[in-house]
Computed example of a mutant assay.
Amino acid sequence: MLKVTFVVYEKAGLDRAEALRYWRDTHGPIDAKIPGLQRYVQQHAIAAPEGDPPFLGVATLTFADEDAFGVAAASPEFAAAIADLDNFADAQRLPTAFVEEVVIVG
């Protein structure tokens, strides 16, 4: 299993609630069409200990393996998802990493 995580920052000038709504209701279905995608989770940042969250949220996409991710990343569906980012997020600021889930509790 291969997981890729994106830290999503909000687009300047866009209302945060609207950005989260767009991400969930419009961008989510676009991502759902990516071939080989086994799981897609959005974690919306709704608050922070110091006040406003420093980012919009985190998205994790799960694929069977690196080959499946490679096929997905080369697809027009993946390109459409990347192109759509500018509608709700700062597309120039998108830290991305392959991650390994380490469960400590649960």
Score class of each variant (00 low, 15 high):
G36F: 00
A68R: 01
Q43N: 13
Y22I: 13
E66S: 14
Y22Q: 06
W23T: 13
A83M: 06
Q43D: 08
Y22A: 00
L94I: 15
A89Q: 01
R39K: 14
L94F: 07
A74C: 07
P54W: 00
G36L: 02
Q42V: 04
D84K: 01
I46R: 12
L37F: 06
T60S: 11
F69R: 14
A59D: 10
A74S: 15
I82Y: 01
D84Q: 01
T26L: 00
L37S: 07
P53A: 00
W23V: 06
P53M: 02
A73C: 08
A91C: 08
P76M: 00
R93K: 15
I30D: 10
Q92R: 14
H44Y: 03
D31T: 14
K33C: 06
I46W: 05
L37K: 05
I30S: 10
G57T: 00
D84S: 01
G57M: 01
D25C: 03
A91K: 14
A81P: 07
T60P: 05
A72Q: 10
I46Y: 02
T26I: 07
I46D: 05
K33P: 06
L56Y: 06
A68T: 13
H27N: 03
D31M: 14
R39G: 05
L94Y: 10
K33H: 08
A80V: 07
D25H: 12
I82W: 02
P54H: 07
K33W: 00
I82H: 01
I82E: 10
F55N: 08
Y40D: 08
P29V: 11
G36N: 05
Y22N: 03
I82Q: 13
A45K: 05
P76V: 02
E50K: 13
A89F: 04
V41E: 09
E50R: 09
P76L: 03
L85W: 06
A79L: 06
G51E: 08
Y40S: 14
A89V: 00
I30Y: 05
L56F: 07
A89P: 01
W23R: 09
A74H: 06
E50T: 15
T60W: 01
I46T: 12
I34W: 02
